[in-house]
Design a protein around this nucleic acid. Structure first.
Lengths: 346, 346
DNA sequence: AAACAAAATGTAAAGCTTTACATTTTTGAG
DNA sequence: CTCAAAAATGTAAAGCTTTACATTTTGTTT
């Protein structure tokens, strides 16, 4: 076996030592290593041999200092748990990896202060670009971003700014589509389980549901609305409350899978037959849809795609003179599975 | 509002400009900024005022070059999806953040080649340390790591090397404990659903189950063993196969939650009463345990903890002369929930 | 006031590369 | 064989800090 690349470096060798061994100047070595400028074939071979032999690798720090480019991308996410964001990170990471960039991760835990801290940190670390996934995009965020001399791409939120590009899910639209699909199956009395009041995404989804109902002159009955916190348990509890009211409904739409699963369990515990008595749909498509005995219906949208597109967009912006505005909405697909009663089968 | 820190930097200001403005040398500015060496109070104030005014921040790259320290930790994981590793990343990230380090993420997708590539990359990027989470720790890994001039901590696997510290779950032990707990409830005919044949962790868990059975002179019946791939569907299918064989069993242990949930669904579809006819337990404790109508029993162990302890350990090693060997096993807890029949209730 | 210690500050090197520009060498045409 | 142009290579600056060591200033003691 020949030399094992970088692992063989006992002590760091630098460019001038290579140059000395080859009897040339450091500029020539640099040219050979970076394949830039002209070098006579014989010289190139000689230098390459020495690079091979010594296992020389340029000091990345010095290089970055000289080039003013770190090939580092910073990504700020509000959470590292849950199913979505890790997938988004994965997507980002894939694209960066394919393009020779590295990913620096920071987690804000939803704290505005931490977001700021991480923006500053990334700025100091001289990252080449930032991907910012937040639960709520505020005017202050826009201010910071506009001051930054590097491109930023926002994930998950519409920035409402012509200067700040983003990639997001069209919450309202897919909630509307999913609801329409449900209504087309003949449902009329829809119960809705939403997320926390202050959640932008949750509000968007609700308004999508309402819009779909509105188009056929229906509306959400106040008595059939629950408000929870995305968790399975909360779905169960909110469903319980609605059932207790005794008002009739033929379908339940939940803002996410967790609450939908909770609702499903609750309905079954009350003896409802799913989907014949009640259809259930979550505006989501996580692993939970597969966990229940009846496969849960939902809306599929890919976080991996979100991440990939975001990273693509960022890389496009990097190196560009002007930061150009782009917005991308990730496509979605309504998935009717065993928890929704189909007309044709009805 | 005063100056908004780093965001205000229109153009980068460097230390010599600050020095010039203050009428001192760059060494003094450096001393003030880093709070090192002695500086007269009046000089310090003057310089601080100018730093404040100009928003000067040292160029991190130059600093790192001079200090030979990047405050960067590289983490290699085999997957970014799933519930465990993102939590581990989260734990690592928390500790690093608390200690002024940054996290560089790389995903190997289980490929040996990619692992190598990322080790090399991290080496070149001059990270201060590496956290390596792998599915299988091979002799080659040990070779690389021993050649590296920076500390490495391995996650999830016993390195079997006195020189390479690790943090892991004691798969065999918790599988054994969980099984013993189950047996103590009076079960005797245990069916086992395992993971892929080549999985180290899966094998460890199986041997833990066998050991527990062995202690009371029982053993796994070959007819009651399934081999799947961790997914819900695979749990369902493997359970189905076993049921078809018609052999009696009073409990099912699955290598993970996914397969346990699949098995649970399958059993219920066949009309078994859980837990009266059959108890079900997964050697895991993910969100899936909450998803089914009957809360799934399992073993809880914290990936966040794993990550935190790993990062702690790494930071301890950094800066130390000799790399010292440490091994940590994360504690676990058996969780009996609704899918296991309890003796006292029996 | 001298002498010395302690404190404050400055100088310059080391950390290592890339690259614009300068210089030398080679090649080919006349 | 000469000269110009092209090719190859070298020099030195720029990128910016930290820090060991040198120097200057200040303060104290005798």
């Amino acid at each position: 076996m020949a030399h094992c690349g970088v692992f063989n470096l006992q002590k760091d060798i630098n460019i001038s030592e290579v140059a000395k061994k080859a009897g040339v100047s450091i500029a020539t070595v640099s040219r050979v290593f970076n394949n830039s400028g002209r070098v006579k074939e014989s010289t190139r071979k000689k230098i390459q041999a020495i690079i091979e032999e010594t296992g020389y690798r340029p000091n990345v720090l010095a290089r970055e200092l000289a080039e003013k480019k770190t090939h580092l991308i910073g990504m700020i996410v509000h959470s590292l748990t849950g199913e979505g964001l890790p997938r988004a990170i994965n997507g980002v990471n894939q694209v960066l990896d394919e393009n020779g960039y590295n990913l620096l991760i920071a987690c804000s835990e939803g704290s505005f202060e931490k977001e700021k801290k991480h923006f500053e940190l990334f700025r100091l670390k001289r990252v080449d670009g930032i991907i910012f996934a937040t639960r709520q995009f505020k005017p202050e965020h826009a201010e910071w971003i506009k001051k930054l001399p590097i491109p930023v791409v926002v994930l998950l939120q519409d920035t409402q700014e012509q200067e700040i590009p983003f990639v997001a899910f069209d919450n309202k639209r897919f909630a509307k589509e999913a609801t329409k699909t449900l209504l087309e199956q003949g449902h009329q009395a829809v119960a809705y389980l939403g997320g926390p009041e202050n959640s932008v995404n949750s509000a968007e989804r609700k308004s999508g549901v309402e819009e779909a109902l509105g188009e056929i002159k229906l509306q959400l009955d106040r008595e059939l609305i629950g408000q929870g916190n995305y968790l399975i348990e909360s779905g169960y509890n909110e469903m319980e409350k609605i059932i207790q009211k005794g008002k009739r409904f033929d379908s339940v739409i939940a803002v996410n899978d967790g609450m939908a699963i909770g609702a499903l369990n609750c309905l079954q515990d009350h003896g409802f037959n799913i989907p014949n008595d009640v259809s259930v749909l979550g505006l989501d498509d996580t692993v939970l849809t597969q966990a229940s005995r009846l496969k849960l219906s939902g809306v599929h949208y890919s976080y991996t795609d979100l991440g990939r597109q975001g990273a693509d967009m960022l890389l496009r912006q990097i190196g560009q003179e002007e930061i150009s505005f782009e917005k991308i909405m990730i496509p979605f697909e309504v998935k009717l599975r065993e928890t929704v009663k189909h007309k044709e089968k009805g």
